[in-house]
Structures are given as structure tokens and as C-alpha cells.
Design a binder for these strands. Structure first.
Lengths: 207, 207
DNA sequence: GTCTATAAACGGATAGAC
DNA sequence: GTCTATCCGTTTATAGAC
């Protein structure tokens, strides 16, 4: 016999699958065409449903945008926290920053549609959507601030560079890799090694 | 560079002024709202004319886009070439790259609406517009390639980092500064000094 | 849950007056 | 050169059938 509970749970799983597909295709289209230029018909088409059906899963286009943006940050933040927290307790600040860089690049490049969409369109979205998304961004930025503050206190960061400039420059540089990184031109591990070297020690040989 | 929308012989100063105002406001709006989300009515409003009047100066919205994109690259490329070419003939590769960084940052930050618009929307514009703009981009990338090739031949660049990775990482990092640089938090010269230091020598103290 | 049909508003582009 | 008026396709969102 089929209970109501069981029916509901089955339906929910099917719901969830379609919902996730909508978010995935929306992220891909936002990334490549921008938010305003992406129509719900295109999203629906890519997800294998009709435009009207989207409104069973979402209240509005802007709600889809909000979830895409949040997922972009969350994918990166989760990867970073996981790696930093699995370090031994006596890890140096340099080791923590290295782990954070690896995690950031991993999350960034393994969820490219969400992360690139976030980076590309954040500066262009309606103010209401921006305000709703701001907290998630702020929390991740705070995490890096704490990491770099620690490095500063331990005297591992250069003193002739402002901490804020360093953080913004490095995070900006890391983020932009999603726009040009090509996995076919070398392994991910090699890539991380090169990026980490540049961040820590720069591009030129010592004079 | 400008595609003629009428006979050049009847062009007046008033024409040119209005035309430039349209481009300036379009760049500002493309930067902050994206290409698709920006309406010609908004551009016209900001430029102090009516929407229909735009078509006296431009053939289409996409033509405006093309000129905005080109101006963004040209502003940066001009500043870089000027600085590199005014160096003494026996300048080291390091000196040339430092001059290029200063020029790049200067052009980028002093024409922020054009450069930021370019960076933000290039990945999202119609393929036709992208193709038309590609050559200008390619030429500027080639300029940097030559500069870094020279540094490599002279043994000034690190050998453990790929030249392509270094160029893409550094240019990406420089470009993104237009998204967060705040002239009220320090002089431009100080800013350039810090950025140049990071690029050349990294963020951490030598072990 | 997904469909079809449609309402309501908007945007690029054009025509023609001044 | 700029304006007003308008055409025509497109878009988000809703209503109601199945």
C-alpha cells in the first residue's frame, strides 16, 4: 500500500531534480549571456521544460538569480574551509593560505558556471538582488581577512604592502582564473603550484 | 575607427560632442547594468537627448557597444605604449614590465567606465560584436607577450612558472583592480608601487 | 508538475515633422 | 540634429486545463 508520506517524498525528489537542473542551466546561461539577456524560455528549454513550468519551482527570475549567486560563493567557501580545517593545529599561516588558495581554485574551477556567473554579473544586477546576496559575500571575505590577519601578526606577510590591497589583488587574480584556465594545458595540481608560487614569491627572479 | 553614420564633411563640433556624450553614458550604463539591461532610452536620457536621436549618430545599439569596447582597450594600450617607448634603449625587461604595469593601471583606472564595461561584458556580448572586437584585444595581448618573451630570453622571469600562466594571471589581476581600487585610500603612485611589488616579488616574506 | 494561452509592459528601430 | 509617434517583436508572469 502506498502511504501519503511516501508519495510525497517521491514527488519531492523529482521536484528537486528539476529544480537543480533549472539552477544549473540558469547559471550556465547567466555566465555566457548575462542576467538580463537570458530569457526564462532559454532556461526552460535547456532544462527540458516549458517556460511557464519554471514558476512551479521559483517565484521569479530574480529568485533564480539569488540562488545562483549564493551557490557560487558557497561552493568556493566550502572547499576552502574544508581544506584549512583539515590542517594540523600548528600549521603556519603560509600553510593555511596555501590550503585556502588550493581550495579557492578548486571550488572556483569545479563549479565554473556558478562562480563565473557570480563574478561576471554581480556588478550588474538589480540593487535588491545585490543586497540579498551581500551577506554571503561578506562572510567569505571575512574568512580571508582573518587568515591574512594571522599571517600579518606572525610576521609572514610583507610589511610594505597593505593587507587590504594584498587580499583584494590576490582574490581578484584567483577569481579571474576561471575566465582563462584550460584544464587541457596541464594538470590542476601543477596549475595550483604555479599560482601559489606567484602569489607567495612573485613572477621575477631575485635581483 | 568610427563607422560613419553620415557624410564626414557635414560633421560639426556639436555632432561630435553629442556623439562622445552618448558613448560616455553608454559606457557608464553598460558597466553598471550590463549591455542587454541598458536601454537606449536610458542612454539618451543620460546624454540629454531623446531615444530616436541616437540613430542620427549610430546605426544600432551594437555599434555603440563596439565603440565602447574598442575605446576601453585603446585607452589602456595607448598609456602602456607611451610609457614603455619613453624608456632608455638599454632598459632592462624588468624596467619595461614595470612601465607597462604603471601604464596599464593608469589607463585602466582613468577610463574606468570604458575599461570596466569592457572587462565585465566582453564574455556576454553577441558573437558578432565579439568577433569585431577581437582584433583590438589580440593586438594588445601580443604586445604583452613580446614584453614577457623578452624578459624570459634575458632570464629575468622565473623558470618554474609558465609564461602564459604568468601573463594571464598578472593581466587578470591588474584588470580586476578597476573593480575595487579606491583613490581615496592612498595615492595612485603608492598603489602602483604596491601592485608592482606583489607582481615582481610576491606577497610573503622570504623564508 | 507540466502544459498552453495570453495578459501587460517594454525595447530597438524607423518615419516624418520641424 | 532632435523631436514625436509608432510599429512590431519579445519578455516576465499569470490563469487554468490536464
Amino acid at each position: 500500500m502506498t502511504t501519503k508520506t511516501r508519495e510525497a517524498s517521491v514527488r519531492t525528489e523529482a521536484d528537486t531534480a528539476t529544480r537543480e537542473r533549472i539552477l544549473l542551466e540558469a547559471a550556465r546561461l547567466f555566465r555566457h549571456h548575462g542576467y538580463a539577456a537570458t530569457t526564462l524560455r532559454e532556461v526552460a528549454d535547456a532544462a527540458g521544460i516549458k517556460a511557464g513550468s519554471i514558476y512551479y519551482h521559483f517565484e521569479s527570475k530574480e529568485q533564480i538569480l539569488g540562488e545562483v549567486l549564493d551557490k557560487g560563493i558557497q561552493a568556493v567557501a566550502d572547499a576552502v574551509r574544508q581544506r584549512v580545517e583539515s590542517l594540523p593545529k600548528d600549521a603556519t599561516a603560509r600553510m593555511k593560505v596555501a590550503a585556502a588558495i588550493e581550495g579557492h581554485l578548486w571550488g572556483l574551477l569545479h563549479h565554473g558556471d556558478f562562480t563565473s556567473a557570480n563574478i561576471r554579473i554581480y556588478g550588474q544586477i538589480p540593487p535588491a538582488a545585490k543586497n540579498r546576496h551581500r551577506k554571503v559575500r561578506r562572510e567569505y571575505a571575512d574568512y580571508w581577512d582573518a587568515l591574512l590577519d594571522e599571517a600579518t601578526r606572525r610576521g609572514e606577510l610583507r610589511r610594505d604592502i597593505g593587507a587590504t590591497v594584498a587580499r583584494l589583488f590576490v582574490i581578484g587574480a584567483l577569481n579571474w582564473t576561471v575566465e582563462w584556465y584550460n584544464p587541457q594545458k596541464g594538470s590542476f595540481d601543477d596549475f595550483v603550484k604555479q599560482i601559489t608560487t606567484i602569489v607567495f614569491d612573485g613572477t621575477f627572479v631575485r635581483e
